[in-house]
Every structure is written in C-alpha cells, then in structure tokens.
C-alpha cells in the first residue's frame, strides 16, 4: 500500500516535470538561433592543439587561428617543426595553403577539397562548410537525452537543398547553455558518416564554449581526431591584412 502511494507520488512528480519541460520547450529553430548566438562571434583568435590518432602513432599539431564569422579564417601551424610556418587562408569559398619550404601558395579546389586535413578525420571540405545551418536544413526537435550528466535536446536537421554534403544531421544541444554536445552527420541513405563529440564546456567572456571536440569518421577504423582549444579570445581587433593572400608569403 505504501509502495503504491510512493509510486503514485513518483508518477505525479514525473508528470509535472514532463509538463514543465514541454511547456518550456522552444521550437527547434529558436534553439539553433540561440546556439548560433552563443557559439559565433564577431571574430575570434584562438590557439589549439590537434591530436591525430593514426594506426601506428599519434601526433599533435598546434595552430593559431584568426577568424571572422564563418567566412574568413586564417590559420598558422606553430608546431611540429615540420609543419611550422604552413598557413591556410579561407575566404568565402576559396581555400589556399602556403608552404614555406617551397614558397608556394596552392589553391585547394575540386577533388583536393576531399583530402583530409593533415591526416585527420576532417576534410578540407568539412572545414569549408560555412553555410548557416538554418539556411540549408529544416530543424525538428525529436527528443531529450542525458549526456555526461547534462540534459540535451535532440534536433534532427533535414536538408532543404540538394547541393550540400550531408543529407541530414542530428545535434544534441545542452538545454541550459545552448552548446552542442554531440553532432552526427548522415548520408542520404541514413547511414551515419561522421560523429563529433564536444566537451570541456567553459564560460569564456560570458559565453559557454566547448574546448574539446573529437571528430570521427565512422566508416573508417581508428580513434578519430581530438581538437582542443588552449586559449581563445572573442571580438579582438584583427587587422584586415591578415585575411589577404599577401599574408601567406610573409
């Protein structure tokens, strides 16, 4: 009898929680917009470490990046010595790589975009992907899930145009901080192609930001690529020459 009573209270509590959640549940587009507001900024300057797990060994590269919105970005490799001085410049839909040893600037285009970046599970094309999600996908809230003790909304994004790489995505968004904690990219057939997990969410200059991202190509064997931000500053003053091709040769 007591058991039954207990259960009853439990159920009623559960019900009230669900009703609260569903009441406070915003629509998917609103969530995406809030995520956007949190994650993107006028510009940012950050240093990061990229650890690539190979079949034989792992190695870590460090890089410094300046970026403005999703459109312009400039990256310089700091270590290891072999990659030091290698620079990458992305302007709109174009990408150039500069190699100091040959003093040549090569535009990465066509099939070269499909190559992996420095042997990671990320392709140049993935890097170039700068279209606003809300422009090319239709989002739908499909559920909730706990990830590492955080409550998340699960969004399903379905492509509205044809000329994009991934037909659909799934995103797990922290319900409080509006930070994605997991993302999955799917093929047209529904097969999972890539998964990224985001963690180490910290508050920087008033924003929640995931400092560690693990990318994994799901069809390939291996442990994926770990991308860790070591320092980040938002809304700095970045001189305009940083985003010109001339900067590559300096």
């Amino acid at each position: 009898m007591t058991n039954f009573k207990h259960m009853k209270t439990k159920i009623s509590i559960l019900f009230s929680i669900i009703s609260v959640i569903s009441y406070s549940q915003p629509n998917a587009d609103e969530i995406l917009q809030k995520v956007d507001r949190n994650m993107s900024s006028e510009n940012r300057v950050f240093e990061s470490e990229m650890t690539i797990h190979g079949r034989r060994s792992s190695r870590t590269l460090t890089l410094r990046t300046f970026s403005v919105g999703d459109i312009k970005s400039y990256t310089e490799y700091l270590t290891p010595p072999r990659e030091q001085g290698t620079k990458m410049l992305k302007l709109e839909n174009q990408l150039w790589v500069y190699s100091p040893s040959t003093d040549r600037t090569i535009q990465i285009s066509g099939h070269m975009l499909r190559q992996s970046v420095m042997g990671s599970d990320l392709s140049y094309e993935d890097m170039m992907d700068n279209k606003k999600l809300t422009d090319i996908y239709e989002a739908e809230l499909i559920g909730n899930e706990m990830i590492d003790g955080r409550n998340t909304w699960i969004l399903e994004l379905t492509a509205t145009t044809e000329d994009i790489a991934y037909a659909s995505r799934k995103m797990w968004i922290d319900t409080e901080r509006y930070v994605p904690l997991k993302e999955e990219l799917y093929a047209k057939s529904g097969q999972l192609l890539k998964r990224s997990t985001l963690s180490d969410v910290v508050l920087i200059q008033g924003r929640w930001f995931p400092k560690t991202i693990v990318y994994k190509d799901m069809l390939k064997q291996g442990d994926g690529t770990v991308f860790k931000i070591t320092s980040i500053k938002f809304n700095e003053v970045i001189p305009e020459y940083i985003f010109s091709k001339a900067v590559l040769k300096q």
Partner: peptide, 16 residues
C-alpha cells in the same frame, strides 16, 4: 613543378 602529396602521417606535403 610542385608535388602535393601526403606524408606518412597523412599531413599534406608540398615540395618543389
């Protein structure tokens, strides 16, 4: 000529 290839580790390599 410039050879664009990938290293043993998969990094892009550019050499003249």
């Amino acid at each position: 000529i410039t050879l664009i290839s990938s290293t043993m580790n998969g990094s892009m390599s550019i050499n003249n």
